[in-house]
């Protein structure tokens, strides 16, 4: 039997990264502050995890302005959506195999 763990995406091991992907998959775009509130992490922590996801091509960043304040929003990419879906499928398989 194939080991289902191999399909679990290492990048989504972190609670913060999983949280970011969960929020982006159901919203067209989410800004930095909203993500921070949802996932309950510090600025630095969130920024570094976002960076990892961006480098892997799972999220894209858009920098804009509201008035004079910067407003950085994040969107999920096609690759990100696919990776997230595969990760969920793997989780589902693992839980099925246990119960």
């Amino acid at each position: 039997m194939k080991n289902p763990i191999q399909h679990l995406n290492k990048i989504f091991d972190s609670r913060v990264r999983l949280g970011i992907m969960s929020a982006l998959v159901v919203n067209p775009s989410v800004n930095f502050n909203e993500l921070k509130e949802l996932i309950e992490v510090t600025d630095g922590n969130l920024a570094s995890h976002l960076k990892t996801l961006e480098e892997n091509g799972y999220v894209k960043v858009e920098k804009g302005f509201i008035g004079r304040k910067t407003n950085t929003t994040y969107k999920i990419t096609k690759a990100g959506e696919k990776a997230f879906k595969n990760h969920l499928d793997a989780l589902e398989k693992m839980i099925r195999s246990i119960s």
């Binding site: 999983l18 949280g19 969960s22 929020a23 969920l88 989780l91 839980i95």
Partner: peptide, 15 residues
């Protein structure tokens, strides 16, 4: 894994 799924659900709902 169950915790992960619970987190995913919670954040999807809340966001």
């Amino acid at each position: 894994n169950l915790d992960a799924i619970r987190d995913i659900r919670k954040i999807m709902e809340r966001s």
